[in-house]
Amino acid sequence: MEIIFSRDCDYEKIYLHLLECKDNFVPPLNERVELRDFAKKIHDNAITFCAIDNHNLVGLVSCYFNNGAYGFINHVSVLSKYKRLGIAIRLMEMCIDYALENSYSLLCLEVDSDNKAAIVLYTKVGFEIKDNNSNCIEMNKAINLEGLD
């Protein structure tokens, strides 16, 4: 196994990845979105951070970067057999680095309050809970731009 990390994810790989990992979400991803439409939206509108093994997309983080001020992470996933290898952390760090390099001051995301594993992951990479309602937790990470020229 040789994981390659990149920012080049094509539509078909994104769709197949979403299809394979849909049941890893709380609630399952296909109960919230139509997977083909979601794959197209990610491909066309988001900056993607990808983990690839043997030409297969095994991990994905996608983020919408808006108006030069903040980014909104709308998707994080790793295929089951690739979990616990540090892939999600690496992809999140790539997203954080992109935000820093492009002078974004904040990253935001929302996570289902029952998705404890995701909450732990986001906390490990520096996200803090901003708002916690009954079903959804909003988390933010301030990007420190001081000292950059």
Rank of each mutant, 00 (worst) to 15 (best):
I47E: 13
T48Y: 07
F49Q: 09
D53E: 14
N54D: 11
N56E: 15
L57T: 03
V58K: 06
V58W: 09
G59E: 00
L60M: 07
L60R: 06
S62L: 02
S62H: 02
S62F: 03
S62T: 08
S62V: 03
C63E: 04
C63W: 02
Y64V: 14
F65E: 05
N66A: 13
N67R: 05
N67L: 12
N67P: 01
G68T: 01
G68W: 02
Y70D: 11
G71W: 10
G71M: 01
G71L: 04
F72D: 14
F72T: 10
I73D: 01
N74L: 08
H75E: 04
H75K: 14
H75W: 01
V76A: 06
S77N: 00
S77V: 04
L79M: 14
L79T: 09
L79P: 01
K81D: 14
Y82M: 10
Y82D: 12
K83Q: 15
K83G: 03
K83V: 05
R84P: 03
L85E: 14
L85C: 12
L85D: 12
G86L: 02
G86C: 09
G86N: 06
I87M: 13
I87T: 13
A88C: 05
A88Y: 08
A88F: 01
I89N: 12
I89C: 10
R90T: 07
R90V: 00
L91R: 08
M92V: 05
M92N: 10
M92S: 13
E93D: 11
C95I: 03
I96H: 08
I96Q: 11
I96V: 12
D97Q: 13
Y98T: 01
Y98D: 00
A99I: 05
A99N: 07
L100H: 15
L100F: 13
L100A: 13
E101R: 14
E101C: 11
E101M: 15
N102V: 05
S103K: 12
S103V: 00
S103A: 04
Y104D: 10
L107N: 07
C108W: 07
E110T: 07
E110K: 05
E110Y: 04
V111F: 02
D112H: 10
D112Q: 07
S113W: 05
S113K: 07
S113L: 03
S113Q: 06
D114E: 15
K116F: 04
A117L: 03
A118E: 03
A118P: 04
A118H: 10
V120Q: 12
V120L: 05
L121C: 11
L121K: 10
Y122R: 11
Y122W: 03
K124M: 13
K124H: 08
G126A: 04
F127N: 08
F127D: 09
F127P: 06
E128N: 12
I129L: 08
K130C: 03
D131C: 02
D131V: 00
N132S: 14
S134Q: 15
N135K: 09
C136Q: 13
C136V: 12
C136F: 02
I137E: 03
I137C: 06
I137D: 00
M139G: 10
M139F: 00
M139N: 06
N140W: 11
N140A: 04
K141T: 00
A142W: 06
A142E: 15
